[in-house]
Design a protein around this nucleic acid. Structure first.
Length: 522
RNA sequence: GGCGCUUUCGUCUAGCGGCUAGGACACAUGCCUCUCACGCAUGGAACACGGGUUCGAUUCCCGUAGGCGCUACCA
């Protein structure tokens, strides 16, 4: 018996920007589908008309395009199992709800939301189930005639799933093994909503997965408690033999404190929780995205892939191809993973370093332009090459910290002096203080005179002349020279910096420093 | 409250009855050095607790405690 072709789906609801946890779920589905030569479906679960947010669907699609997660079928991709937007499948669901009604596996209930709220307030732990349904207003208590009459009169109603109590329902989860819960603790879930005349997630989900021939449901752990309900639905429809296999992924948790990762954590700690920048169409609020923050899609993918799964072994830098090859649902961890965004920055650094400096240049040029600096990509690439191994200081809620250059945008604060000459010197600066003594001005004047004789101002050209002079004079001009050209204790190798600036600019900066700092002791 | 899932360094994790419990991020120190770094080397750092099972438990079972989730006419 050969198993059917693997078909998985990622089915977000368009209620806003895609959360990074959702991105990981989609990624795992993608890796699984690719590894098995299967198909990945993109379905839109927009059965909650109240929470619909315009633009969310396009946002999600663009996010996956950027990340390199490709779908084979679904909204905007086509396919033979459409439509793939649930709001366009109303008639299909209606038909299946009727099937359940006819089979006596579901019933009609007239209780209004207000009545239910009141009931919940008056009876603690109230649950609409076998123990309470006979006290409510539904087709079971009202009888067929009365029900038909109320429906005909246009009274709003919902359809509820009739759950038989006292049965142990088993879910065989790929990640968690056998999960068993008793049907008595399940409530008679609403399958069809009166409010928007659409099914709930539970019904739509089962019908679609069945009709779309989905073989594996890979989703977040928040769905685990309702998985038994889904199993019961498959059975009620008579689809138990083709029921997909389930895999419930661990959740992404806050970097610190308690609870699951939320947008607020990103704002508080300074990292994005969305793949792309999001502009809230109602509030106008802007949330940062990984793309706009300077992350490389490969880095985001690699980082996310290893949050909750690990191929074993010591290799952590993995390409999409390697991930596809090594991915294994059974090796997913069972417990929630704290979102270690600092490690995410490290991944980005690794991927940034892997590419040639020239590949950073366009972004860097744009960044410089925003600072009013006009330069070429070649020049920018030279600077990148000299500075990519440096460390940047940044501020956090716990005070200043340092980290390696991890983004192109880290470069500007480190590279200003390449493009802007010092206009003043901070005599209180430790480095300046230490390296500018009363004799320094005259030493710098000597160095200046030596430099002015050089025609070939390349690193090699300078070396050929300056090294012997250093040797013979016994001077150590480096730090003072750095003060002249940079203004502080920063920057690359002095010859490299001087070569970049060019002879004229170097001499100009030295003249200015000698004049400004003079022979005074600082 | 009820139900379910879960528990190895600060964090992500490897481990699938016998190991000096491994790696990575982060952190610290040293070397290198023309500044800051990179790099290299080194270091601190974990099996939640209590019972079993077993010759032997981080590993299997049961409790306890913590964490997480669900408990809507939301997904």
């Amino acid at each position: 018996m050969n198993s059917p072709k693997v078909r998985v789906r990622f089915a977000p609801s368009p209620t806003g920007p895609l959360h990074i946890g959702g991105v990981r779920t989609a990624l795992y589905n993608y890796l699984f589908a690719r590894q098995h030569g299967g198909e990945l479906i993109f379905r839109i679960e927009d059965t909650d008309s109240a929470r619909f947010v315009p633009g969310a669907e396009e946002y999600i699609l663009e996010a996956f395009r950027w990340l390199g997660i490709k779908f084979d079928e679904g909204v905007s991709f086509g396919g033979e199992y459409g439509p793939y937007r649930q709001s366009e499948r109303r008639d299909i669901y209606k038909q299946y709800v009727q099937q359940l009604l006819d089979a006596g596996r579901a019933y009609i209930a007239f209780d209004t939301p207000e009545e239910l709220t009141a009931k919940r307030e008056q009876v603690s732990n109230f649950q609409y189930d076998a123990s309470t349904r006979n006290q409510m207003r539904n087709s079971l208590t009202l009888g067929k005639e009365e029900t038909d009459r109320l429906v005909a009169e246009g009274h709003p109603y919902v359809v509820r799933f009739l759950i038989e109590p006292g049965e142990d329902v088993h879910v065989n989860d790929i990640i968690r093994g056998d999960v068993c819960i008793n049907s008595s603790i399940l409530d008679d879930k609403v399958l069809w909503k009166s409010a928007d005349q659409l099914p709930t997630y539970h019904l739509a989900n089962i019908v679609d997965d069945h009709l779309m021939k989905v073989t594996h449901v890979i989703r977040g752990e928040e769905w685990l408690p309702s998985a038994p309900l889904h199993v019961l639905l498959y059975r009620a429809f008579g689809w138990a033999d083709t029921m997909p296999r389930f895999a419930h992924l661990p959740l992404l948790l806050k970097p610190d404190g308690k609870g699951k990762l939320s947008k607020r954590d990103g704002d508080r700690l300074g990292f994005p929780v969305f793949p792309l920048e999001w502009h809230n169409p109602v509030t106008g609020e802007v949330s940062s995205g990984y793309r706009e923050s300077g992350y490389l899609p490969e880095a985001v993918i690699n980082f996310l892939a290893l949050l909750g799964w690990n191929p074993g072994g010591d290799q952590e830098l993995l390409s999409m191809e390697e991930l596809i090859q090594k991915f294994n649902l059974e090796k997913c961890s069972k417990n929630g993973a704290r979102f270690d965004y600092v490690k995410g920055q490290w991944f980005n650094r690794e991927y940034l370093l892997q590419r040639p400096a020239a590949a950073w240049a366009p972004d860097f040029v744009r960044l410089l332009a925003a600072q009013g600096i006009d330069t070429t990509e070649e020049r920018a690439a030279e600077v990148v090459e000299m500075m990519k191994m440096k460390v940047i200081e940044y501020t956090t809620s716990e005070g200043p910290k340092k980290r390696n250059v991890s983004f192109v945008s880290d470069l500007w604060p480190l590279c200003r002096f390449f493009f802007v000459a010092p206009t003043a010197f901070n005599r209180e600066d430790k480095f300046v203080k230490k390296n500018w003594k009363e004799t320094t001005a005259s030493e710098m004047q000597q160095l200046r005179d030596v430099l002015s004789t050089i025609d070939d101002f390349s690193v090699e050209g300078q070396k050929a002349v300056v090294d012997p002079w250093v040797e013979q004079s016994g001077l150590k001009p480096w730090n003072a020279w750095r003060v002249c050209l940079v203004g502080e204790g920063q920057g690359p190798d002095m010859y490299a910096l001087a070569a970049f600036l060019g002879k004229e600019e170097v001499l100009r900066r030295m003249d200015f420093a000698i004049k400004t700092l003079g022979s005074c002791t600082v």
